[in-house]
Design a protein around this nucleic acid. Structure first.
Lengths: 383, 383
DNA sequence: ATCCCGTGAGAAACCGTTTTTTCATCACTG
DNA sequence: CAGTGATGAAAAAACGGTTTCTCACGGGAT
């Protein structure tokens, strides 16, 4: 109770040994008996903490003051080229690297972001995270990963950690565009962007353009001369399902094609694709000549069903999937043409926008739908 | 060239607007004309940076010195209970949270870890990362995610960032226990543990106990009375394949069962499982009554083949997989009994050990094989 | 020779904490 | 009543940087 604001007691005590250890090491430079007893044990060598070289050491080695050293290394202020160069060379030779935390302290900017996600096993968050991390790394910004398992308490804990660590901004990533994370965001002292998750009123969000992707896929099929293009997809409870269905319908309209009785909703599984395929294609008359599937699993199941029915893909039926989940798309026979949601790009754009917000640049609020990309493989024929 | 040690020029210029922005905000407290022009634009509200409350403000509000405030909040030093309580209440009412970076600066400990991984799309790293992140969060430690895409340059960049940010330790996670990451680790100034990756001589590593897991699976089958247990698995180029095969063989020996001609090596795909199943079970005589598969995909393909051949799972043939990849294990009919590598636990243990190393506790070097867990579903029958 | 100014570099203040040291106060002893 | 500890709290010194201010110096104009 006493202490409830701060680091947990566990953490607190955890910290003690190290601190005293370091202190001791600094005061007495290695007593002999200690060295002797430590020697034999087959323990992993703790690298000499060898107290990292500071700008102060660079300064004395270069024969200047720390102020001058700092200015020399940061290309600020005025000074003779010789001085600047001498300092830089000394810094290099000592392999000096400035302490980012010290620097953050004075700049009031940590060059650090938080990524809060509840998609622990998911195939969505990792690409987003990778794209984000890569783009940020290029700009000297690092990303804290916070895996909250749909557990509000864990969310709170991580949010507090992010506040304490003074991250410059926060990316909140989920697995469904129509669901928020299990957090009631407290008033945060930093800008936030949402990725692949419900975006609160007035917030900034990034999601793949599901409708656009579906349009892309359907138009591709129409462009290849297919006339009866059906849509087999996931459960109606997903917003993404409706968006993709809408894109499909719009593309059919645009191509002047009939909309054969609405989309076939079901589940995101191979099984559903397989069963729907059997049902749809065993009836002889008026068979579709193309299927746009709501995801790659469905497409995979569908292809299995078609193959079993003796129908050839793509000759008799062309198939497009959604997700570009390599595991399914590449493994399918024939390999699957599918829609890639560009999740890495999503993470990248979210990060860049967040940086803009941090820099105080004006950023339009609202949800951005990032374009998808059609990956053509062999399941549609064509060139 | 001039500047090659430090933040990139891009970063450098990026930082400027913010810095001057903050400065200005502090000097003049909001000029009216600025407020007016800013007002109408539909831009995302940058939360009032409202310069976070510092311990200094807490101190003056409580009528004590900062030293006293610090001691009061950290349960250090001696003081009257009244003073301590008063400070704590003031801190709470101002919702003060200490700046972790300032604190890190004096403690020489950032309570921060780096996670370097090249498994961007993979199903292996994310659970590891989640387990690590969760366990560390409980201890007030945050984890930087560094996604390097098998790109040495990116690896270098991220390593430098981790050094600059003064992480206390590093977790290096890969996708294969017999491959290192594309890094030639420079002499690092912090302890390192390796997870699911090749561990250099004298290092500390964590991998799942493949052999043990295989033994677990095979012994389970033997315990259910199966006598002819074959093993269908991935390519021989994987160390994990050999370990699992060895575990399988050992379990057969232990149960006094014959080893029918060695393991069947191939690839990690459903297709391979399917085809091998057809080949193996269409020949009439001396059919196996159980199969231990090297992963869940193979198991899934195998079950498809068995079903097609009219063989019942588990009545005629019992099947065990490896990975507990929900997508396959749960979706299989019947649901798959399989070996879980406990990747989250792996991440957790790696993190805890790393913390020990950071604390200077003696830690045995070498690779630890963490036990796997058998998840029993319906593909083996039994209770 | 004096004044002024531009220039390069050092001194000092600061960022937000913790920790050590110093200091004043007060209640006891002898 | 002076001397002695204990005690609570403040002052000061770190931690590793950046930035603002100040200053000494030298050259050119008067």
């Amino acid at each position: 109770m006493r202490n409830r604001f701060f680091i947990t007691e566990k953490t607190f005590f955890l910290a003690q040994p190290l601190i005293t250890f370091v202190k001791r090491a600094r005061l007495k430079p290695a007593r002999e008996d200690e060295a002797l007893t430590d020697n034999a044990a087959p323990v992993a060598s703790v690298p000499d903490t060898a107290s990292r070289v500071t700008i102060r050491e660079v300064a004395v080695a270069a024969g200047v003051s720390v102020a001058t050293a700092s200015k020399a290394l940061n290309a600020r202020g005025r000074m003779t080229p010789e001085t600047r160069q001498r300092v830089q060379e000394v810094a290099r030779s000592l392999s000096f690297r400035p302490n980012a935390m010290a620097r953050a302290l004075v700049h009031q900017r940590s060059f650090t972001l938080g990524l809060l996600t509840n998609d622990t096993y998911g195939r969505f968050t990792l690409p987003v995270a990778a794209g984000l991390s890569a783009a940020m790394a290029d700009r000297g910004v690092s990303v804290f990963l916070c895996a909250i398992e749909d557990d509000p308490e864990r969310a709170r804990l991580n949010l507090e950690a992010m506040e304490d660590k003074r991250v410059d901004g926060l990316v909140i990533a989920g697995k469904r565009v129509d669901r928020g994370l299990p957090i009631t965001l407290p008033p945060l002292s930093m800008p936030v962007v949402h990725v692949n998750a419900e975006c609160p009123e007035g917030g900034v969000g990034f999601v793949p353009d599901d409708a656009g992707g579906a349009h892309l896929a359907t138009a591709h099929l129409a462009g290849l001369g297919r006339r009866r293009i059906v849509h087999i997809t996931g459960p109606e409870s997903f917003a993404a399902v409706h968006l993709r269905a809408a894109g499909w319908r719009r593309a059919l309209d645009a191509a002047g094609l009939p909309c054969p009785g609405g989309a076939l909703f079901g589940e995101w599984s191979e099984r559903f694709g397989y069963e729907t395929g059997q049902r749809l294609f065993s009836a002889g008359a008026e068979r579709p000549d193309a299927v746009f599937c709501g995801n790659d699993q469905i497409a995979r199941g569908l292809i299995d069903a078609l193959t079993l029915l003796g129908l050839r893909v793509p000759e008799d039926v062309a198939v497009v999937g959604f997700d570009n989940w390599e595991l399914f798309a590449q493994a399918a026979r024939p390999p699957l043409t599918t829609v890639d949601m560009e999740l890495k790009g999503l993470g990248r754009e979210a990060g860049l926008t967040l940086l803009d917000m941090i820099d105080g640049k004006p950023v339009e609020r609202g949800v951005r739908r990032q374009p998808c990309r059609l990956v053509t493989r062999r399941s549609c024929g064509g060139p």
